[in-house]
Design a protein around this nucleic acid. Structure first.
Lengths: 103, 103
DNA sequence: ACGGTAGTTCAATAATATAGAACTATTGAA
DNA sequence: TTCAATAGTTCTATATTATTGAACTACCGT
């Protein structure tokens, strides 16, 4: 059983968030997760068929370790959800301001 | 004579800005530049005595190439100024939202 | 012309990202 | 319950990027 480690809200840092969102693919993944408002699997939320799955797995790890998403194993898939409330509490307006300009 | 190349406003990208700001030192430099509202030299705007000057030079190049700052040679120094108006026109609210939470 | 200051460029090394291959865990069907 | 397929992780090698010291350039004041 894979047990994912997530940072607590207090451990989420601005630099961590910016670093995670600085990659165009990760930004796109996050945008997709928010727009779909669902619990998407990694492949569903990554609009990129060409990328290696090991690379994708790494991108999700970075998103998770930055505190941006919460992942849980549901059957054979990972379901990811954006930690909107927590991030908005700690950094009000930040996500909205960034995502507003994403593609 | 060093002639700096700056991207035009149209060539400034969100990912470029985020990537430049994802580094804590560069974020701090930008914050310092804005707060001082002056034309600071590299050493003045970098609150970090330990870092190698070649590294610092590289950080300023990244800030410049991302479109965040404009550099000009004044005597023996470089003077840097944040391209606030242009960035605010292209990405309204972005810089403010990020800098609000910087240290 | 000379020394000092501020920065750039170069070359080597350190750190990080990517991707293929092998592995694990779960599901669904024979 | 065995088998194959799916969805992802981990490992290992390679490619890219960051950091640094050293050498170099440009400018200023004397």
């Amino acid at each position: 059983m894979v047990r994912f480690v997530h940072p607590s809200k207090d451990d989420i840092t601005l630099s961590g968030l910016l670093e995670a969102l600085a990659d165009p693919l990760r930004l796109k993944i996050l945008k997709t997760l928010i727009e779909q408002k669902g619990f998407l699997s990694c492949c569903q939320s990554a609009p990129c068929p060409k990328i290696a799955k090991s690379t994708l797995s790494n991108h999700f790890r970075i998103l998770r370790e930055s505190g941006l998403i919460r992942m849980s194993k549901k059957g054979v898939e990972n379901h990811s959800v954006v930690r909107l409330e927590e991030i908005n509490e700690k950094f009000p307006g930040l996500l909205k301001a960034i995502l507003k300009h994403a593609d």
